[in-house]
Design a protein around this nucleic acid. Structure first.
Lengths: 215, 215
DNA sequence: TCCGTGACGTGACACTGCGTCAGGTTGGGA
DNA sequence: TCCCAACCTGACGCAGTGTCACGTCACGGA
């Protein structure tokens, strides 16, 4: 679908308009990676894009809205996390390998989209509903898949009765998202990324399979 | 210690000055609870405190600095988390009870200091070093205590060899802090606070004691 | 009691960014 | 070539920031 875009005055954007809009988004993406979100001004974005503030407001009501567009594009990529859980072995040695792959998936995804995810977290904390929803939708995929796996293994008697699949999956995904977002911060504690990775994999594996991680 | 306070021009604040400063902090605390952090302006704070912007800048270089002061006061309260880990039983039924108390400690602390902790997280994500350090120092207490317990139980052969106490403690504290900060968000997933609490306690107990949580 | 002085507070200003018009410019189809 | 819809922007009112120089206050000494 060629995706129709509306301008502030309700016009349908044509070829030229779309190019301008795209340029603004690209410049903004670059700036997001280079400077703190709150320091980015509309005037600055437009200066670098070689246009004027008024033009920016043709396409976005404010900076947040523009970033939300970028974030939505990124969230599509977040769907790649789901298959890391679904249709994978979750028992024995290969089950532990699955857990590690999932952890790596989070660490990698957060590393690759650091700047944008930072803004998503930021806006979510600030109470912005649009970003919050985006975040929830993105994580929902993995959470539900994980809950399904836990529920299935619980049915087979591998996981204890007193575990609530949904809540456990939620707690785990929270841990993964948080620690992936703060992965550089662990170095201050003299904790290597490798050890963090292992610890999270152990927790995930235990919670999902009900067994200790193999050596 | 009566705590000496310096003004912008290097003066030592007297009785009157301290009262003004305190008033500004109190007004700011109220506003923090009522409106999104980013919407709070110096002009607004001073208007409500019945003074002028120039006065604000006598005592704080910017809003962040003022909030940092408030956050530091709160962080003192964060020390109450450490004894929830230290000198507690960590094995058997009472060990599981300890895990639950720790989880409750996090949930309660975050609920009670929601507004300020939100700003701390916010500023940390934005890359503000002052807030980041405050956060690290606050969580360091619990993390280290937890790592000590894990290490001790590992020495006694309860916890598997391939667990790294520091990394595991870090991962757990990250999970606790994150999920405590997002505790209302779980309702959107139809997960009750009670189930979240239980799930986190199970994870903590397993990681620390190396055993399944008792029924 | 009054006064002088240092402590404290503030009015006013220059500056920057926001968001919105009305009007100017551009380029592709007839 | 010309025209006009699509697109862009200059200019402006508004609001907040941060900084002076100056005004006011209250306290201790005579």
């Amino acid at each position: 679908m060629p995706e129709t875009v509306l301008t502030a005055d309700g016009r349908i954007a044509g070829r030229r308009a779309k190019a301008t809009r795209r340029r603004l988004l690209d410049v903004l993406t670059e700036m997001l990676a280079a400077s703190p979100y709150r320091d980015i001004t509309v005037i600055d974005v437009t200066r670098r894009a070689g246009t004027s503030p008024a033009t920016f407001y043709q396409y976005f009501p404010d900076i947040e809205a523009a970033v939300l567009t970028i974030a939505a594009e990124m969230a599509q990529g977040g769907k790649q996390l789901r298959p890391l859980v679904e249709d994978q072995p979750w028992t024995g040695k290969s089950g532990y390998e699955t857990a590690r792959m999932l952890v790596d998936g989070f660490l990698d995804f957060w590393r690759h989209n650091e700047a944008v995810l930072r803004v998503v977290d930021l806006a979510t904390i600030e109470g912005d509903e649009r970003f919050h929803e985006l975040r929830v939708r993105m994580l929902n995929n993995v959470t539900n898949a994980l809950a399904d796996v836990i529920r299935e293994l619980q049915r087979r008697g591998r996981v204890a009765e007193n575990v609530r699949p949904e809540a456990m999956a939620g707690a785990l995904v929270g841990m993964l998202a948080h620690n992936a977002a703060h992965q550089q911060g662990f170095e201050a504690w003299d904790i290597t990324l490798e050890d963090l990775r292992e610890s999270m994999a152990q927790l995930v594996f235990w919670a999902v399979s009900g067994r200790r991680a193999p050596k």
